[in-house]
């Protein structure tokens, strides 16, 4: 059984004969999968499109990620469940879900299973989702406004990320989450960079905005780049990815530290 959501990945495989599934289950009209519930905790149904996330994402970083994706046509079709289902390291919502410490909700005839995002992806386009399981939602705790997503690519629209970075500073819970995309077999959480950032917020005070020093921002960028496991591929070299991650890490910290 092959699940068809927005079709932005699967239809390409079908049109070029790379996959010939016997059965396709189209879920784009399943209303139960298209809801967004928010009450301090966000439950985003797998069928929520990127266009919907622009207006109501339950996360600033997720809204920014949705804005970077494709074009209006792609955003009208593609869904968060599809991004999770494809599980590409370049999936733009995935670094955000990692940084938010989101939970992936899977359902089968046997029942529901809740998988922390950190355990969900196992490799490029590989996840712990079993063939009999449907992704029904992603859930996370609302983390406040201090969060951002950024990526580098050949152009802003219609391009696959060469490297992407999400940063979430949950001031209320004193938590920093960073997710790196397109620079390893799975989405990477740079633990040393997160710890360094926590130290900066301990010092500056979690509750109020501050302007990090240039050397602190640079050090964060260095720690982010050191955690990446990038490869050379058609989109960019490993060296360029590390460089871009260092720049984005520094920039993301400077941006979110000033938001409270």
């Amino acid at each position: 059984m092959t699940v068809l959501a927005g079709g932005t990945d699967l239809m390409v495989e079908l049109n070029f004969g790379r996959r010939r599934p016997e059965h396709i289950v189209a879920i784009d009209r399943v209303g139960e999968l298209a809801g967004i519930e928010r009450n301090g905790h966000v439950r985003m149904g797998a069928g929520v499109t990127y266009t919907r996330m622009l207006a109501d994402a339950g996360s600033q970083a997720l809204a920014e990620a949705a804005r970077t994706i494709g074009s209006p046509q792609i955003r009208n079709a593609g869904t968060i469940g599809g991004n999770l289902g494809t599980a590409s390291p370049a999936g733009d919502t995935l670094p955000v879900l990692a940084a938010l410490e989101a939970t992936v909700v899977l359902r089968s005839k046997a029942g529901e299973r809740r998988v922390p995002f950190a355990d969900y992806m196992t490799g490029p386009k590989k996840s712990v989702r079993r063939a009999d399981e449907l992704i029904v939602a992603a859930e996370w705790d609302e983390a406040g406004p201090a969060q951002t997503y950024m990526f580098v690519s050949t152009r802003n629209a219609m391009a696959i990320s060469i490297a992407g970075l999400a940063m979430v500073v949950d001031r209320a819970r004193k938590r920093v989450g960073i997710g790196l995309g397109s620079c390893g077999p799975t989405i990477i959480r740079p633990a040393d960079a997160e710890g360094f950032a926590r130290g900066l917020f301990d010092e500056a005070g979690w509750e109020r905005p501050h302007r990090p020093s240039e050397s602190a921002a640079k050090e964060l960028g260095r720690l982010v780049a050191a955690a990446a496991r990038p490869i050379d591929d058609v989109r960019g070299t490993a060296a360029y990815r590390r460089h871009a991650l260092a720049v984005m890490g520094a920039r993301a910290l400077s941006r979110v530290a000033q938001i409270a």
Partner: peptide, 21 residues
């Protein structure tokens, strides 16, 4: 779904008709 030449509106929204059954 890269070039946009097949863009049509479905329920008023632009989509790539090549990526739509």
């Amino acid at each position: 779904g890269t070039c946009g030449a097949c863009t049509v509106l479905v329920d008023g929204r632009p989509v790539y008709s090549c990526l739509t059954l």
